[in-house]
């Protein structure tokens, strides 16, 4: 039991340091590669902590390696637009000029109802007031209104 506690402590320290190295971002703001890295890191840390039969290095080395690769990859993607597009894709326009763009909805695997829901979340009653809906690289939808720059808040 003591071994598990010590291992958990080591991995906590290491994961915190690695997350700091990768930068501060919330899950909703993560790029695809960052999300993959975060999921992988958490999985990698669990096994050697609970299974003492596994050498500590089997957890430590992949953990260090994946987070280091992530930093290098994010540096390259910041410098090269081609690489950035290859890794994280481009923003996709889902709604424009009063019409849903079916081809883009299919490729993004998003339904028109999802878009409408996101529009309502942003404070617009219906699609008539919306000029453009764009699915950003982070997975969030940007809703751009037609003329009114500020979204209608609830109650008016």
């Amino acid at each position: 039991m003591t071994v598990i506690v010590i291992r958990a402590f080591i991995f906590y320290i290491l994961l915190t340091l690695m997350m700091k190295l990768m930068g501060k971002r919330q899950i909703g703001e993560m790029q695809m590669s960052e999300l993959v890295t975060t999921v992988l890191l958490s999985e990698l840390a669990v096994l050697p902590v609970t299974d003492t039969d596994i050498p500590l290095l089997h957890g430590l080395m992949p953990l260090l390696m994946i987070s280091s690769i992530e930093v290098v990859v994010s540096f390259i993607s910041r410098k090269s637009k081609k690489f950035r597009v290859l890794l994280n894709g481009n923003p996709i326009t889902l709604y424009e000029n009063g019409k849903f763009i079916e081809q883009n909805l299919t490729s993004a695997r998003v339904s028109s109802e999802d878009v409408e829901a996101q529009v309502r979340i942003n404070g617009y009653r219906d699609m008539k007031k919306v000029d453009l809906v764009i699915l950003e690289r982070t997975g969030k939808m940007s809703v751009i209104p037609k003329s009114d720059p500020m979204p209608n808040q609830s109650g008016d």
Binding site: L21, M22, G23, M61, L64, M65, S67, S68, I69, V71, V72, F75
Partner: peptide
């Protein structure tokens, strides 16, 4: 600075593993 640390870490991991 993070990039340099990461590159050093990667080099260390590759060397140590080999």
């Amino acid at each position: 600075r993070n990039l340099i640390i990461s590159c050093i870490l990667l080099a260390f991991i590759v060397g140590f593993t080999a």
